Amino acid sequence: MYKNLLFVVALAFISCNGVSQKKEMAQKANDQKKEFAVTKTEEEWRKELTEEEFYVLRKAATENPFTSELLENKEKGTYVCAGCGTPLFKSETKFKSGTGWPSFYQEIEGNVAYDVDYKIGYKRTEEHCATCGGHLGHVFEDGPKPTGLRHCINGIALDFVPESK
């Protein structure tokens, strides 16, 4: 009897399916190999980017939290890809998430692409630049209104272009 109960409990745990980001964002992601408008060799990227930018943008590393110079930036302007200059986020969509990385509730439509990432053992929605494929961070469904999204972005993957007066 106890063996049967133990078997049922074990089966229930094994069959549990995690729901982290299982909704809309992860479903938008596409597992196909993507082609990008800006394509360079690893050597070319290494020459153009700092070592930190290279590892985040090209090797999908994550910068340490609370280290980005852009974290507390409150100026009006546009956050662009540090690899290719594509506009990614507007300053008015930035918010303080408390996570240690610059966070935005909305991307500039068409300039951010998505993929599914299982690197830490469960499904997350990875974000990358739609022009060069540079790794930006991840998007989560725990952000503020109006979208309910939190684009958690490595500051080193971004450059800031102030609004011209």
Rank of each mutant, 00 (worst) to 15 (best):
E63P: 04
G85N: 06
I153Y: 01
A37R: 12
A26G: 11
F7T: 13
A130K: 04
V19G: 15
R58K: 10
A10M: 14
S20A: 14
G83L: 11
A26Q: 06
N111L: 07
Y114E: 03
N30G: 11
E126R: 09
C132S: 06
E92G: 06
K47S: 14
W101Q: 08
N111T: 06
K76D: 14
T50S: 15
P102H: 10
K3Q: 13
I153K: 04
V9F: 10
H128E: 06
K40Q: 12
L136V: 04
Q21H: 12
K22V: 04
P144G: 02
L5Q: 12
F140C: 02
G155W: 00
L57T: 04
G137T: 02
K90H: 13
T131W: 01
V161E: 06
T41S: 15
K28P: 01
K59H: 08
E48F: 03
D31Q: 11
G137Q: 01
K33R: 14
C129I: 05
P162E: 03
K76H: 08
A82T: 03
F13H: 09
G121A: 09
Y2M: 06
S164G: 11
K47H: 13
K40C: 07
L149K: 09
H135Y: 07
A29G: 13
T78Q: 03
V116A: 10
T78F: 02
T93P: 04
H135F: 09
Q27F: 06
F95A: 06
E126M: 10
E63W: 10
G155Q: 01
P65D: 13
F7P: 00
N4K: 09
Q27N: 15
F13M: 14
P65T: 14
A10S: 15
Y114Q: 03
V38F: 09
I108R: 02
G134D: 01
E72S: 14
H138M: 11
F66A: 08
R46I: 07
N154T: 05
R58I: 01
L57Q: 03
Y122S: 10
A12Q: 02
G98I: 07
P65A: 15
